[in-house]
Design a protein around this nucleic acid. Structure first.
Length: 283
DNA sequence: CCCTGAACCTGACCGC
DNA sequence: TGCGGTCAGGTTCAGG
Protein backbone atom coordinates (compact mmCIF):
# COMPACT_ATOMS: atom_id res chain seq x y z
CA UNK A 1 0.00 0.00 0.00
CA UNK A 2 2.02 2.89 -1.22
CA UNK A 3 0.79 6.24 -2.32
CA UNK A 4 1.84 9.70 -3.08
CA UNK A 5 4.92 11.77 -2.81
CA UNK A 6 8.29 11.25 -4.39
CA UNK A 7 11.39 13.33 -4.45
CA UNK A 8 11.46 17.11 -4.72
CA UNK A 9 7.90 18.03 -4.00
CA UNK A 10 6.75 20.95 -6.05
CA UNK A 11 3.15 22.02 -5.99
CA UNK A 12 1.93 19.24 -8.29
CA UNK A 13 3.53 16.63 -6.02
CA UNK A 14 1.82 18.15 -3.03
CA UNK A 15 -1.49 18.13 -4.88
CA UNK A 16 -0.90 14.52 -5.90
CA UNK A 17 -0.01 13.60 -2.34
CA UNK A 18 -3.14 15.32 -1.12
CA UNK A 19 -5.37 13.47 -3.54
CA UNK A 20 -3.63 10.19 -2.82
CA UNK A 21 -3.81 10.47 0.94
CA UNK A 22 -7.24 12.04 1.42
CA UNK A 23 -9.41 8.98 0.73
CA UNK A 24 -7.38 6.92 3.20
CA UNK A 25 -7.52 9.26 6.18
CA UNK A 26 -10.67 11.34 5.74
CA UNK A 27 -13.31 10.59 8.37
CA UNK A 28 -10.81 8.47 10.31
CA UNK A 29 -9.86 9.07 13.91
CA UNK A 30 -6.27 9.51 15.03
CA UNK A 31 -5.27 6.64 17.27
CA UNK A 32 -1.66 7.50 17.92
CA UNK A 33 1.14 9.75 16.83
CA UNK A 34 4.69 8.45 16.79
CA UNK A 35 7.53 10.91 16.34
CA UNK A 36 10.81 9.10 15.85
CA UNK A 37 12.82 12.17 15.00
CA UNK A 38 11.38 15.60 15.84
CA UNK A 39 14.33 17.51 14.38
CA UNK A 40 12.89 18.77 11.13
CA UNK A 41 12.97 22.34 9.82
CA UNK A 42 11.36 23.22 13.13
CA UNK A 43 10.81 20.80 15.99
CA UNK A 44 7.72 18.71 15.30
CA UNK A 45 4.92 20.20 17.37
CA UNK A 46 1.92 17.86 17.46
CA UNK A 47 0.16 17.80 20.83
CA UNK A 48 -1.01 14.53 22.37
CA UNK A 49 -4.59 15.70 22.59
CA UNK A 50 -4.97 15.26 18.83
CA UNK A 51 -5.44 11.57 19.53
CA UNK A 52 -9.13 10.80 19.25
CA UNK A 53 -10.00 13.59 16.86
CA UNK A 54 -11.34 12.87 13.41
CA UNK A 55 -10.07 14.11 10.05
CA UNK A 56 -12.79 16.29 8.59
CA UNK A 57 -10.93 17.31 5.47
CA UNK A 58 -7.50 17.42 3.88
CA UNK A 59 -6.57 20.36 1.70
CA UNK A 60 -3.59 22.47 0.76
CA UNK A 61 -2.42 26.06 0.61
CA UNK A 62 0.63 26.47 -1.58
CA UNK A 63 2.85 23.54 -0.71
CA UNK A 64 1.39 23.19 2.76
CA UNK A 65 -0.86 20.21 3.45
CA UNK A 66 -3.58 20.94 5.95
CA UNK A 67 -5.39 18.25 7.91
CA UNK A 68 -8.58 19.69 9.38
CA UNK A 69 -9.38 18.05 12.70
CA UNK A 70 -12.24 20.32 13.68
CA UNK A 71 -10.60 21.39 16.93
CA UNK A 72 -7.69 22.69 14.87
CA UNK A 73 -5.45 21.79 11.95
CA UNK A 74 -2.23 19.94 11.35
CA UNK A 75 -0.04 21.90 8.93
CA UNK A 76 2.59 19.89 7.10
CA UNK A 77 5.25 20.88 4.59
CA UNK A 78 7.25 18.28 2.67
CA UNK A 79 10.31 20.48 2.38
CA UNK A 80 12.61 19.34 -0.36
CA UNK A 81 12.68 15.63 0.16
CA UNK A 82 9.63 14.75 2.21
CA UNK A 83 7.08 12.16 1.18
CA UNK A 84 3.97 10.59 2.64
CA UNK A 85 2.91 7.00 2.30
CA UNK A 86 0.01 4.96 3.54
CA UNK A 87 1.39 1.83 5.15
CA UNK A 88 0.16 -1.07 7.24
CA UNK A 89 0.73 -0.89 11.01
CA UNK A 90 3.37 -3.57 10.99
CA UNK A 91 5.34 -2.23 8.08
CA UNK A 92 9.08 -2.07 8.71
CA UNK A 93 10.40 1.38 9.50
CA UNK A 94 12.92 2.66 7.01
CA UNK A 95 15.67 5.20 7.31
CA UNK A 96 14.26 8.73 7.63
CA UNK A 97 10.75 7.57 8.52
CA UNK A 98 10.45 10.34 11.07
CA UNK A 99 6.76 10.38 11.84
CA UNK A 100 3.66 8.15 11.87
CA UNK A 101 0.07 9.13 12.38
CA UNK A 102 -1.97 6.02 12.99
CA UNK A 103 -5.65 6.11 12.22
CA UNK A 104 -8.54 3.83 12.92
CA UNK A 105 -8.85 0.60 10.97
CA UNK A 106 -5.10 0.14 10.69
CA UNK A 107 -4.26 3.02 8.42
CA UNK A 108 -0.86 4.58 9.03
CA UNK A 109 0.26 7.81 7.43
CA UNK A 110 4.05 7.66 7.38
CA UNK A 111 6.34 10.62 6.77
CA UNK A 112 9.80 10.10 5.32
CA UNK A 113 12.20 12.99 4.85
CA UNK A 114 15.95 12.42 4.32
CA UNK A 115 16.90 16.08 4.37
CA UNK A 116 14.53 17.06 7.14
CA UNK A 117 13.52 20.37 5.59
CA UNK A 118 9.86 19.56 6.08
CA UNK A 119 7.72 20.65 9.01
CA UNK A 120 4.73 19.61 11.12
CA UNK A 121 2.76 22.18 13.07
CA UNK A 122 -0.56 22.34 14.79
CA UNK A 123 -2.82 25.37 14.83
CA UNK A 124 -5.97 25.83 16.88
CA UNK A 125 -7.05 28.77 14.76
CA UNK A 126 -7.66 29.23 11.07
CA UNK A 127 -4.56 27.69 9.48
CA UNK A 128 -4.52 30.51 6.94
CA UNK A 129 -3.69 32.83 9.84
CA UNK A 130 -0.76 30.68 10.93
CA UNK A 131 2.53 32.56 10.80
CA UNK A 132 3.84 30.22 8.10
CA UNK A 133 0.85 30.74 5.80
CA UNK A 134 -0.25 34.26 6.59
CA UNK A 135 1.87 36.07 4.03
CA UNK A 136 1.65 33.54 1.22
CA UNK A 137 1.01 34.86 -2.27
CA UNK A 138 -1.74 33.88 -4.66
CA UNK A 139 -2.55 30.34 -5.69
CA UNK A 140 -1.15 29.99 -9.22
CA UNK A 141 -4.25 28.21 -10.50
CA UNK A 142 -6.67 30.77 -9.12
CA UNK A 143 -8.34 33.40 -11.27
CA UNK A 144 -6.77 36.21 -9.28
CA UNK A 145 -3.37 35.06 -10.48
CA UNK A 146 -3.29 36.78 -13.83
CA UNK A 147 -1.13 39.01 -15.99
CA UNK A 148 -2.66 42.13 -14.52
CA UNK A 149 -1.70 41.08 -11.00
CA UNK A 150 1.90 40.25 -11.89
CA UNK A 151 2.33 43.28 -14.08
CA UNK A 152 1.05 45.65 -11.41
CA UNK A 153 2.99 43.97 -8.64
CA UNK A 154 6.23 43.98 -10.63
CA UNK A 155 6.33 47.71 -11.32
CA UNK A 156 8.12 48.54 -8.07
CA UNK A 157 10.45 45.54 -8.11
CA UNK A 158 14.17 45.75 -8.70
CA UNK A 159 14.74 41.99 -8.84
CA UNK A 160 14.97 39.66 -11.81
CA UNK A 161 11.78 38.18 -13.21
CA UNK A 162 12.84 34.71 -12.09
CA UNK A 163 13.32 35.78 -8.47
CA UNK A 164 10.02 37.62 -8.72
CA UNK A 165 7.92 34.67 -9.84
CA UNK A 166 9.67 32.37 -7.36
CA UNK A 167 8.78 34.69 -4.48
CA UNK A 168 6.26 32.82 -2.36
CA UNK A 169 4.81 36.08 -1.13
CA UNK A 170 3.80 36.88 -4.71
CA UNK A 171 2.65 33.49 -5.96
CA UNK A 172 3.06 30.08 -4.34
CA UNK A 173 4.16 26.83 -5.91
CA UNK A 174 6.58 28.11 -8.51
CA UNK A 175 9.89 26.51 -7.64
CA UNK A 176 13.11 26.46 -9.60
CA UNK A 177 11.93 23.86 -12.09
CA UNK A 178 8.65 25.52 -13.01
CA UNK A 179 10.13 29.00 -13.02
CA UNK A 180 12.83 27.90 -15.44
CA UNK A 181 10.40 26.07 -17.70
CA UNK A 182 7.77 28.80 -17.63
CA UNK A 183 10.29 31.45 -18.65
CA UNK A 184 11.44 29.25 -21.50
CA UNK A 185 7.88 28.85 -22.74
CA UNK A 186 7.34 32.58 -22.41
CA UNK A 187 10.59 33.30 -24.26
CA UNK A 188 11.98 35.47 -21.48
CA UNK A 189 15.42 35.44 -19.94
CA UNK A 190 15.52 34.68 -16.22
CA UNK A 191 17.81 37.63 -15.62
CA UNK A 192 15.53 40.34 -17.04
CA UNK A 193 14.32 42.83 -14.44
CA UNK A 194 10.73 42.14 -13.45
CA UNK A 195 9.81 45.81 -13.71
CA UNK A 196 10.88 46.01 -17.34
CA UNK A 197 8.55 43.35 -18.67
CA UNK A 198 5.41 44.25 -20.57
CA UNK A 199 1.86 43.21 -19.82
CA UNK A 200 2.08 40.86 -22.80
CA UNK A 201 5.14 39.18 -21.31
CA UNK A 202 3.29 38.57 -18.08
CA UNK A 203 0.39 37.17 -20.03
CA UNK A 204 2.78 34.64 -21.51
CA UNK A 205 4.36 33.87 -18.14
CA UNK A 206 1.00 33.34 -16.44
CA UNK A 207 -0.21 31.18 -19.28
CA UNK A 208 2.94 29.06 -19.10
CA UNK A 209 2.84 28.65 -15.32
CA UNK A 210 -0.81 27.62 -15.32
CA UNK A 211 -0.36 25.18 -18.15
CA UNK A 212 2.77 23.59 -16.71
CA UNK A 213 1.23 23.13 -13.28
CA UNK A 214 -2.06 21.86 -14.66
CA UNK A 215 -0.40 19.36 -16.95
CA UNK A 216 1.90 18.23 -14.18
CA UNK A 217 -0.92 17.67 -11.75
CA UNK A 218 -2.78 15.74 -14.40
CA UNK A 219 0.20 13.50 -14.99
CA UNK A 220 0.58 12.96 -11.29
CA UNK A 221 3.45 15.11 -10.27
CA UNK A 222 6.78 16.12 -11.58
CA UNK A 223 9.48 13.58 -11.79
CA UNK A 224 13.18 13.98 -11.56
CA UNK A 225 16.06 11.75 -12.42
CA UNK A 226 15.31 8.60 -10.50
CA UNK A 227 11.57 8.98 -10.14
CA UNK A 228 9.57 5.83 -10.52
CA UNK A 229 5.83 6.17 -10.25
CA UNK A 230 3.89 3.94 -7.85
CA UNK A 231 2.92 1.71 -10.76
CA UNK A 232 6.59 1.17 -11.52
CA UNK A 233 6.60 3.11 -14.74
CA UNK A 234 9.25 5.75 -15.32
CA UNK A 235 8.06 9.28 -14.78
CA UNK A 236 6.78 11.16 -17.75
CA UNK A 237 7.30 14.77 -16.87
CA UNK A 238 11.07 14.76 -17.13
CA UNK A 239 10.75 14.11 -20.83
CA UNK A 240 8.90 17.37 -21.17
CA UNK A 241 11.55 19.50 -19.45
CA UNK A 242 12.97 21.91 -21.98
CA UNK A 243 15.68 23.65 -20.00
CA UNK A 244 15.84 22.55 -16.37
CA UNK A 245 18.87 20.32 -15.86
CA UNK A 246 19.82 20.57 -19.53
CA UNK A 247 22.75 22.98 -19.43
CA UNK A 248 25.06 22.49 -22.39
CA UNK A 249 22.51 20.45 -24.29
CA UNK A 250 20.82 21.64 -27.45
CA UNK A 251 17.57 23.55 -27.25
CA UNK A 252 14.71 21.31 -28.30
CA UNK A 253 13.31 24.12 -30.42
CA UNK A 254 16.28 25.82 -32.06
CA UNK A 255 19.27 23.58 -31.21
CA UNK A 256 21.25 26.42 -29.68
CA UNK A 257 23.36 25.32 -26.71
CA UNK A 258 21.51 25.95 -23.46
CA UNK A 259 23.28 28.21 -21.00
CA UNK A 260 23.24 28.46 -17.23
CA UNK A 261 23.30 31.55 -15.05
CA UNK A 262 22.92 31.98 -11.32
CA UNK A 263 19.88 34.01 -10.31
CA UNK A 264 19.73 34.57 -6.55
CA UNK A 265 21.95 31.56 -6.01
CA UNK A 266 19.69 29.30 -8.04
CA UNK A 267 20.94 27.78 -11.25
CA UNK A 268 18.85 28.91 -14.14
CA UNK A 269 19.14 27.28 -17.51
CA UNK A 270 17.86 29.10 -20.57
CA UNK A 271 18.10 29.13 -24.32
CA UNK A 272 20.14 32.15 -25.45
CA UNK A 273 18.24 32.25 -28.72
CA UNK A 274 14.63 31.42 -27.80
CA UNK A 275 14.81 33.51 -24.66
CA UNK A 276 16.28 36.60 -26.20
CA UNK A 277 14.49 37.92 -29.27
CA UNK A 278 10.98 37.59 -27.97
CA UNK A 279 11.83 39.04 -24.60
CA UNK A 280 13.36 42.08 -26.24
CA UNK A 281 10.30 42.54 -28.37
CA UNK A 282 8.18 42.36 -25.25
CA UNK A 283 10.03 44.98 -23.28
C1' DC B 1 10.62 48.00 3.06
C1' DC B 2 13.34 45.66 -0.42
C1' DC B 3 16.54 42.44 -1.74
C1' DT B 4 20.42 39.18 -1.38
C1' DG B 5 22.85 35.57 0.66
C1' DA B 6 23.36 32.22 4.46
C1' DA B 7 21.54 28.49 6.75
C1' DC B 8 19.26 24.14 7.41
C1' DC B 9 20.53 18.61 5.68
C1' DT B 10 21.56 14.46 3.15
C1' DG B 11 22.41 11.85 -0.98
C1' DA B 12 24.15 11.72 -5.55
C1' DC B 13 27.82 12.56 -8.20
C1' DC B 14 32.64 13.60 -9.70
C1' DG B 15 37.58 13.45 -9.63
C1' DC B 16 41.57 11.68 -7.52
C1' DT C 1 37.16 1.22 -3.04
C1' DG C 2 36.98 5.28 -0.65
C1' DC C 3 37.35 9.84 0.38
C1' DG C 4 36.55 14.70 0.04
C1' DG C 5 34.42 18.36 -2.39
C1' DT C 6 30.36 20.22 -4.77
C1' DC C 7 25.77 20.59 -5.82
C1' DA C 8 20.68 20.45 -5.41
C1' DG C 9 16.39 21.94 -3.44
C1' DG C 10 12.22 25.36 -0.44
C1' DT C 11 11.86 28.40 2.89
C1' DT C 12 12.96 31.64 6.54
C1' DC C 13 15.84 34.76 8.66
C1' DA C 14 19.80 37.95 9.27
C1' DG C 15 21.85 41.69 7.49
C1' DG C 16 23.16 45.17 3.96
Amino acid sequence: MILAGECLPELPEVETTLQGVRPWIKDRKIQSIVVRNPNLRWPVALPDFLVGSKVLEVWRRGKYLIIDLGIGSVIAHLGMSGSLRIVNPGEAVRTHDHLDIEFSRGIVLRYNDPRRFGSWHYSEDDPLDHWLLRKLGLEPLSEEFCADFLHRKSRSKAQSVKAFIMDGNVVVGVGNIYASEALFHAGIRPTVKASRLSFASYENIVKAIKRLLTDSIRIGGTTLRDFVSPSGQPGYFQQTLNVYGREGKPCKICSATLKKVLVTQRSSVYCPRCQSDRSKRNL
